[in-house]
Design a protein around this nucleic acid. Structure first.
Length: 198
DNA sequence: CATGGGATTGACT
DNA sequence: GTCAATCCCATGC
C-alpha cells in the first residue's frame, strides 16, 4: 500500500471524454473526486480500479467480443455489465478507441438524493449506500441498458468538481483471481466510504 | 446447444 | 469466518 499527498494530479479542468482518452491508470487516479450522477442521485468517487486488455483480469483480455464491444469503443462512455448474475458494475471506458480498457467505479461518497438511494438500497446507513461497485449502481439506479452511454451527456454522467484532488492510497485490486499483484486500485486516504477489502 | 465462471453482496455460524 | 443467489456470455463440442 502506497500513500501519496495531494497535488500530483491536474486539477479538474477536462471533460470526461478528454480525461478518459489517457492511460488507464492515470484515468483511474484522476477520476477520484469526480462526481457520478444519475437523475437526482449523485456521489463523489472515492475508489477506482484500472483494467486493461494487456492483463488477464480485464474482460478486454479476451479480445473484441459482443461483451467487450463497449470497452474497445471511444473513451468516456459507460461500460456496464452484470456481475455474479446479480449486480451491475459501472466502468468508464478509457484509452483511445481500439484499445480495451476501463476504470471500475468501486465506491462513492453519497452527495445528492440520499433518501432515494436509501429507498433503492433498502437500508438507512449512509456508509452502506455506495461503498461497493454493486451497491453504488443499485443506489443510483444504474442498469445494464446504460451500457455504451456517453458519460458526458447522460443519462449517467461523470463530471469534475472544483475541489482539489485528495490524498490517494494505491493498492492491489479486490475480488479478482488473476493479475492480483498489480497496484491498480486507488482510493481516498482515510475515507469512510470506500468498499471493504478482503 | 451445454457448461462453467465470475471486477459482489448480505445473511448467517 | 462461510455460503448461496443468479444471469450474461465465452468457450467448446
Amino acid at each position: 500500500m502506497i500513500e501519496e499527498p495531494p497535488g500530483g494530479r491536474r486539477a479538474a479542468s477536462r471533460t470526461i471524454a478528454e480525461l478518459c482518452a489517457g492511460e488507464v491508470c492515470e484515468v483511474a487516479r484522476a477520476l477520484i473526486g469526480w462526481v457520478v450522477r444519475h437523475g437526482e442521485t449523485a456521489g463523489v468517487i472515492v475508489e477506482t480500479e484500472a483494467y486493461h486488455e494487456s492483463e488477464p483480469a480485464s474482460h478486454a483480455h479476451a479480445g473484441l467480443t459482443p461483451r467487450t464491444l463497449t470497452l474497445f469503443g471511444p473513451p468516456g462512455r459507460a461500460y456496464v455489465y452484470r456481475s455474479y448474475g446479480i449486480h451491475a458494475m459501472l466502468n468508464a471506458v478509457a484509452e483511445p478507441e481500439g484499445i480495451g480498457a476501463g476504470v471500475l467505479i468501486r465506491a462513492l461518497e453519497p452527495s445528492d438524493g440520499i433518501e432515494l438511494m436509501m429507498l433503492r438500497r433498502g437500508r438507512t446507513g449512509i456508509r452502506d449506500l455506495c461503498s461497493g461497485p454493486g451497491k453504488l449502481t443499485q443506489a443510483l439506479g444504474i442498469e445494464l441498458w446504460h451500457n455504451g452511454g456517453d458519460l458526458g451527456s447522460g443519462p449517467v454522467t461523470i463530471s469534475p468538481t472544483q475541489e482539489p484532488p485528495p490524498a490517494l492510497i494505491t493498492s492491489r485490486r479486490i475480488g479478482i483471481t488473476k493479475a492480483t499483484e498489480l497496484p491498480w486500485r486507488f482510493s481516498v486516504s482515510g475515507s469512510r466510504f470506500v468498499s471493504r477489502g478482503r
